[in-house]
Amino acid sequence: MIQVLAFYLFATLVIASAVFVIMSRNPVHSVLWLIVAFFNAAGLMVLVGAEFIAMLLVIVYVGAVAVLFLFVVMMLDIDFAELRAGFIRNFPLGIAIALVLVAELVLGIGAERAGALKLGTPDGTAAPLMDRSNIEAIGALLYSRYLFLFESAGIILLVAMIGAIVLTHRERSDTRRQNISKQVKRRPDEATINVKPEVGKGVQL
């Protein structure tokens, strides 16, 4: 009973906040609504017993992606009113595409239910471990069977990082960068000078 209640609560909130994402006038509010939607989707994932995905949603989507969106929205000067005008003009097209997608979903699921579409039977390498949470099950697979691929994926992320630095990092001459070792090495006698200004005359440094 409580599960059903929780499901309807989370589901309503996901849909409501998703509507607010596209309806709110202020783009920053949109991103904040998006965060609400992610949290509620995480709640739904917990309900179906996928707590690992719930955690990923919160950590990756809320923690990283949403914050990134917020940065982009705040840093870039985008005319959202103009974007919205295009949105309304293309609204019928959007609805048509959405209907096509829904029809495909219905047809696909219907065909599978009717037995016209036979999916493969899983080969069992990724079967869940008994009496273990799915975090443990994923960990056990990731660090044993798929260890090699897991490590290789790490190299991909490293290459992405090298790439971002190679393409964007450059020494700039027009900014004054902090040189900590130079600051630390400075002696008091280099930093201060004693002058005795005459009355009525300024100091020449």
């Binding site: 036979k118 999916l119 493969g120 039977t121 899983p122 080969d123 390498t125």
Partner: peptide, 8 residues
């Protein structure tokens, strides 16, 4: 993967 149930 969906129609064969395996990635190998």
């Amino acid at each position: 993967y969906g129609f064969t149930g395996t990635t190998s």
